[in-house]
Design a protein around this nucleic acid. Structure first.
Lengths: 248, 248
DNA sequence: CACGTTGGTGAATGATATTTATTAGCGGCG
DNA sequence: CGCCGCTAATAAATATCATTCACCAACGTG
């Protein structure tokens, strides 16, 4: 119980300086080792403080991680926002958003990784500041799509939120290999490919698949799905749900 | 040092029985608490064994998780595979794969979550059995798209792997809210919406945006991207990269 | 029925995040 | 100018788990 009366050295620095030192050290250690293999003791050493001091500024290891990622994401949003403001035209804007999301992943893969794989899965994410930031970030695409629909450039029956999920989901799937530090990708080329696909869809020219035939196939598919998957009767077979054809 | 010579009870059961007991208990504890908050001691109690016994069958906590998820995923593949074999037609097959991925997530959200958010991100995932299984699972869509291109039903310039990323990425993004146990989704409706969007794309009718105008917009976008994003000179501006129009 | 072997046991160990008792140094006040 | 209380930093203690290990119950074998 009795503690030896050791001489101790005290490191007195302005609090902002300490906080930014700790966050900088934490960023390095987290990105090098991942969250669970990052040691508080390691962060403390690199920040030039003692372990206990970290808990004076951050409630626990997880809050430290969140603060580090928040800081990065805020920077990202700030610089991105002013550039986006200068882009005109629906098509142009969609392409820009895709391109920049790819760039942000490529520019700091380790932090993107922490964001997508460590923070977003956590149960309290929805109530966090990062959730709001990310929401605002991706919502720009929703707004662009809505504007495009309003102006008649995009299909009126498209779901803006589905487009958002498709675009950002696609980007993340595409970059997963890269996030594991394996391989490279070209943001411009990738952005163009994604934009192109989301723009034109997968179907061949009308000539190759006449409307009637497609709808017939779809109806067959619907019927079969019910049989094969054993859908409970409560869930209705989809109403026509036909792929909207160019010329109905 | 000396251990007290306590009487101890020994639980002698066929090894397969013990293993399946442990895996069942582990599945429950992992899905209830998530990986890092799951306690080995808790798993041991529920399986009716002692902590040390778990390490007789599984090298460590992580291997136990992997085995649990592998088991689930194998079941999933088995039943899915025979159903898929009965589906005919490109369009039909794409819709089926989307629908079934949605169903698998909805049927066991907690296990899907462990697979996508705990296992897939890990660094050694690429060399694991689950990686191979998942690869085979998603590769079916790649094959379907290739076949569709060969038969002329799908655009010949579509990238099959990009379609795969777009579809599975979209599904996962869409179901994230659900994975956090908040909200519901209707697999049939969702599958139809996704299939529809990937099929027809986002662009409005040709009539509404004549080819010339779209290409002009695209070229403007390309030029602007270089300026705004400060692309290094080494990365070339994308070649026309025009959205392939229905009637070039 | 002695005896080696297998596999199960539960306590010990080790690694870390977090807490706490204690003190260094600053600033206000006599 | 010096004492004193207060705040913030410190280093050691504690708590929490995963993992290991020394020991022994049961089974099979000769």
């Amino acid at each position: 119980m009795a503690r030896s009366p050791l001489k101790r050295q005290v490191n007195r620095l302005p609090p902002e300086r300490r906080i930014s030192d700790i966050m900088a050290a934490a960023k390095d250690v987290f990105t090098e080792n991942g969250y669970s293999d990052a040691l508080i003791s390691d962060i403390a050493v690199r920040a030039g403080v003692v372990e206990g001091s970290i808990y004076r500024f951050f409630a626990n290891k997880r809050e430290l991680l969140v603060k580090v990622v928040e800081h990065w994401f805020e920077e990202l949003l700030r610089e991105d926002a002013e550039q986006f403001g200068a882009v005109r035209g629906v098509w142009n804007q969609i392409r820009f958003l895709i391109y920049h999301h790819l760039m942000s992943i490529r520019s700091d893969p380790a932090l993107s990784r922490l964001m997508f794989q460590e923070i977003r899965p956590s149960p309290d994410y929805r109530t966090s500041r990062l959730f709001e930031l990310n929401r605002a970030y991706t919502h720009r695409l929703v707004d662009v799509v809505k504007a495009g629909i309003a102006s008649g450039e995009l299909r009126p029956d498209a779901s803006p939120s589905l487009v958002r999920d498709m675009v950002f989901g696609c980007i993340e799937h595409r970059t997963w290999a890269f996030l594991r530090q394996e391989g490279e990708f070209d943001p411009v080329e990738t952005a163009d490919a994604i934009t192109n696909l989301i723009y034109s869809g997968l179907a061949a020219e009308q000539a190759a698949s006449p409307a009637g035939a497609v709808i017939a196939r779809l109806e067959a598919a619907t019927a079969r799905l019910e049989t094969i998957a054993g859908l409970p009767a409560a869930i209705e077979a989809p109403t026509p749900a036909a792929p909207r054809l160019r010329r109905p």
